[in-house]
Design a protein around this nucleic acid. Structure first.
Length: 877
RNA sequence: GCCCCGGUGGCGGAAUCGGUAGACGCAGCGGAUUCAAAAUCCGCCGCCGAAAGGUGUGCCGGUUCGAGUCCGGCCCGGGGCACCA
């Protein structure tokens, strides 16, 4: 064994060994004869943006730790990897550097694959695929045509961001302060025909199945529940005042306040608004103004609320009063019927709107002990759990439920309304007017209409040599792509030039890993083996908590309903049994201000932080010139703040194990991780020390680790107890808690205790052997290269990854005496040692005799003594 | 604006079911070793206080023998908001 820790050599050797032995190959057992349970460990696949960032390293290290740990626990493990290869950045790169999106993407993949390999992840590379290949996307085209035939895909108008200068549709991200990112032109909302997936048909199932996901974080289930947004209310109509046959429909969850309606608000795109605007230039101008700016909900919701009366009046269905219709810029056409009843007294937004435009406010709910005033909004006005109806005629005195029931019944009797369950969830618009995506397999025929591309003409291949101009879709300028003939009538027809939302690819990739080579079917019985009962562990960023995870759940149900899972184990209710959402990686920011006040962001790697004698930061200087820089906040690593730290530099300097160890030690997986160079040094130091400790032991000669417990000194028995406690602790942290920082801390503590313990005698040598072998295996899932090397030194010829994970010996855990803390009135005053099996009375007596306790009891009698077994005694005086 | 999460020493964090707040690590300080430095090893390290002790987990209030942990109200930071992935 060499005395120095040389990560580069060790890591190369270990990776070669794993490659040669096929250590990461996953083989399914379709016969069911292998007793090993399967463990499918999946990390969210990366977008091939160029090179790995810290978030990737963190994500895939977590997955690798869980994969390797479960393999040692006797599972048949699958850990795959692939590429979410379609998307906007490839088009942006094409624009910026004049490179073809396909070539750019494939070369990024090659580089990032080599980075992943250098990190030593136990990935089964034979299952790798990129979603931009026809072999992959043909199956989603195929599924699309099936869903189209079933009516689960349909076409309707949708609103997009339109750049009037570049003549192109913009993503929300490309709209900055309501203006196009390249042109700077004010963006307009424009309605265009798009294909939609009927996710609302699955709203109820997607909601109720959340209760069957105990392995998901509560916060994610809650976010999805709120996103689906099931609400029960009343949908009813206001007949138009001058034509009772025509009706304006609204939905409300507050039908109990219906007698307080003082106006009705409709979206700018609502037909009534359009009609009123025809004879009202001011209103037409206002509607135009509403169409300015992007479609993102966050922008619309934070916009100043504006409105204008239409001059149209409707009749209140219960009172018969005339109510004016307003256009409001905060009313969304895509929600419900694009119109809302306004009850300013009991809705905060309506209240502000009514105050602004001096509209009447009519109180119809009163709560005991509260006074209604028009001076300002109060929390209880909108609280449906408080109060009862007033100024509401026959409904006076009724509380929420009773009032809603009575009002819904009266509306129903008049034939103008009914109780209804509504979802906030909207259908998923999947059309994108972009090039680098999966072509939508539809042919538009002047005689037959929209015709899905037949199976034998799939895939519709995306041409790879195109010119990207940033204006409009390149496919729409390529006759050789869109000119085609109708599959039904054979006549001249035009191919759809829109591509699919890239969430389409990521909604089913996890199933394809089970059968990436199947050229005749989307999925096969291997999915039944690996995905039975759900993927055992899914790991990815919290930012995907809603959209990606919801779409994936939806796809699994769609594929089931298309009959794709007709094989054993194929009754997948939910795709992901257990979910771990990792936090983001953040780093400090530094900047200097330029003459124009513009901030010039400096990379943390180029900055030295100056501290006072207690280590508090007092300032920072740029290494290049030694001049001061401003310390900004700690933020998510990003290009714009130039605070990204390249993992490659870290791997090159310290090796993969140090990178993996630091990233796992710095914080628990679900919290954000703050980057620190000094912490990396610490991780490297620990590995060096572990190497040196093992080296010293090996130099003294290997021994059998079998120990006769009666030969151990007290200190040695204590160390052995700590060793076996650590085994239990680490297995629990890896398996149940998925908290790796505390597992590492526990091993560090063990090694500290090892250093302090006298181990020179025969029993000590055996204990040292047992401890070091165990430590190599305990840390193997996190730092597999050094773990592999150390274990092979301690047990020549043996392979660490094939060993069972260390298991605590109950006999080693036994303790004769335990320490209990003594409190007086809840304050820590001392401690006592008692036999482990001491009963409450004995503990109480020992506590009351303790001199520290007596001192702080100041001669007063104990009013009460609380004994918490194994922990403490609290004496109350 | 709406939904969700978080806030503990100079820093990252620990405290798993309401029971010793600050494990483990970083930084810092003191010492050993060295011609010197690096590396390594030993010790100290929340705040106030000479000590006894007091005090302390974003802020205010509550429940409890006991609250970082539970409840109510606020402040601050972050994630998502349907075309970034």
């Amino acid at each position: 064994m060499q005395d120095k820790y040389t990560p580069a050599d060790i890591e190369r050797a270990a990776q070669q060994h794993w490659d040669q032995t096929g250590a990461a190959r996953a083989v399914e057992d379709l016969s069911g004869q292998n007793a090993k349970p399967k463990y499918y460990c999946l990390s969210m696949f990366p977008y091939p943006s160029g090179k790995l960032h810290m978030g990737h390293v963190r994500n895939y290290t977590i997955g690798d730790v869980l994969s390797r740990f479960h393999k040692m626990q006797g599972y048949n493990v699958l850990q795959p990897m692939g590429w979410d290869a379609f998307g906007m950045p490839a088009e942006n790169a094409a624009l910026a550097n004049n490179v073809a999106p396909a070539g750019w993407t494939y070369s990024n993949i090659d580089y990032m694959r080599s980075q992943l390999k250098s990190l030593g992840f136990a990935i089964d590379w034979e299952r790798e695929f990129a979603t931009c290949t026809p072999e992959y996307y043909r199956w989603e085209q195929w599924l699309f045509t099936r869903l189209y035939e079933k009516g689960l895909v349909y076409k309707k108008l949708g609103t997009v961001n339109w750049d009037p200068v570049d003549h192109t549709v913009l993503a929300n991200e490309q709209v900055i302060d309501g203006k196009g990112w390249r042109s700077g032109a004010v963006v307009e909302k424009r309605e265009i025909p798009m294909y939609y997936m009927k996710i609302t048909a699955y709203a109820e199932e997607l909601l109720s199945e959340l209760d069957n996901l105990p392995g998901w974080p509560e916060q994610v289930r809650l976010m999805q529940k709120n996103w689906i947004g099931k609400s029960t209310g009343v949908r009813f109509a206001f007949p138009l005042a001058d034509n009772a046959e025509e009706k304006l429909w609204v939905f409300t969850t507050r039908a109990d306040t219906i007698m307080g309606v003082t106006f009705v608000a409709v979206a700018a795109e609502h037909p009534l608004a359009t009609r009123a605007a025809a004879s009202n230039p001011d209103l037409a101008a206002f509607i135009e103004e509403c169409k300015q700016g992007g479609v993102a909900e966050a922008d619309i919701a934070t916009m100043e609320k504006k409105g204008m009366p239409t001059g149209i009046h409707v009749t209140h269905p219960l009172t018969g009063e005339k109510v004016e219709v307003w256009v409001g810029n905060y009313v969304l056409m895509s929600y419900g019927d694009g119109a809302v009843m306004a009850v300013p007294a009991h809705d905060e937004r309506d209240f502000a709107f009514a105050k602004k435009y001096d509209l009447p406010i009519k109180q119809v709910i009163a709560a005991a002990g509260e006074t209604f005033s028009l001076d300002g909004w109060q929390e209880w006005y909108g609280d449906k759990s408080k109060g009862a109806c007033v100024n509401s005629g026959k409904y006076d005195g009724l509380a929420y439920d009773a009032a809603v029931d009575a009002i819904a019944a009266d509306l129903a009797a008049k034939g103008v309304g009914e109780k209804k369950t509504q979802f906030r969830l909207r259908d998923w618009g999947i059309s994108r007017q972009r090039y680098w995506g999966c072509p939508i397999p539809i042919i538009h025929c002047p005689t037959c209409g929209d015709v899905p591309v037949p199976d034998d003409q799939l895939p519709v291949v995306l041409p790879e040599n195109v010119e990207i101009t940033g204006a409009g879709s390149p496919l729409a300028r390529m006759p050789e792509f869109y000119e085609t003939s109708c599959p039904k009538c054979g006549g001249h027809a035009k191919r759809e030039t829109d591509t699919m939302d890239t969430f389409f690819e990521s909604s089913w990739y996890f199933l394809r890993y089970a059968c990436p080579d199947n050229a005749t079917a989307m999925v096969d019985e291997r999915v039944g083996y690996w995905c039975k009962g759900g993927i055992d562990q899914y790991i990815g960023g919290i930012e995907h908590a809603i959209l990606h995870l919801l779409y994936s759940r939806f796809f699994t149900k769609l594929m089931r309903d298309v009959g794709l899972f007709a094989f054993p184990g194929g009754d997948l209710g939910e795709p992901f049994a257990n979910l771990l959402t990792q936090g983001m990686v953040v780093a400090p920011t530094f900047y200097r201000e330029g003459e124009n006040g513009k901030k010039l962001w400096l990379n943390p790697a180029d900055v030295d932080v100056v501290t006072d004698e207690r280590g508090r930061p007092t300032g920072a200087t740029l290494r290049a010139d030694g001049q001061p820089v401003v310390i900004g906040g700690t933020e998510k690593m990003s290009k714009s703040k130039n605070n990204g730290v390249d993992p490659q530099a870290l791997i090159d300097q310290y090796g993969a194990d140090t990178a993996r160890l630091f990233i796992m030690f710095a914080s628990p997986p679900d919290q954000s991780l703050e980057w620190s160079d000094a912490g990396v040094e610490g991780a490297y130091r620990f590995l060096r020390r572990l190497w040196k400790t093992t080296y010293d032991h090996v130099q003294a000669g290997l021994v059998d680790s079998k120990i006769a417990p009666n030969l151990l000194s007290t200190a040695q028995a204590d160390l052995r107890r700590k060793l076996h406690q650590t085994m239990g602790k680490v297995a629990d942290d890896y398996g149940r808690r998925k908290q790796f920082n505390t597992a590492i801390a526990a091993v560090m503590e063990l090694l500290n205790a090892y250093d302090k313990c006298e181990l020179g005698d025969a029993a000590g040598r055996a204990l040292a052997q047992e401890t070091l072998e165990s430590v190599a295996l305990l840390l193997f899932p996190i730092v597999p290269h050094i773990g592999q090397a150390l274990y092979a030194e301690l047990q020549p010829g043996r392979d660490a990854g094939s060993q069972p994970f260390p298991k605590a010996d109950p006999a080693a855990l036994k303790q004769d005496e335990i320490e209990l803390v003594i409190q007086v009135n809840g304050k820590l005053r001392g401690s006592i040692r008692v036999p482990a099996e001491a009963d409450k009375a004995a503990i109480e007596a020992a506590a009351l005799a303790n001199p520290e306790a007596l001192k702080f009891m100041e001669g007063k009698p104990a009013k009460k003594v609380v004994v918490v077994p194994g922990r403490l005694v609290n004496i109350v005086v």
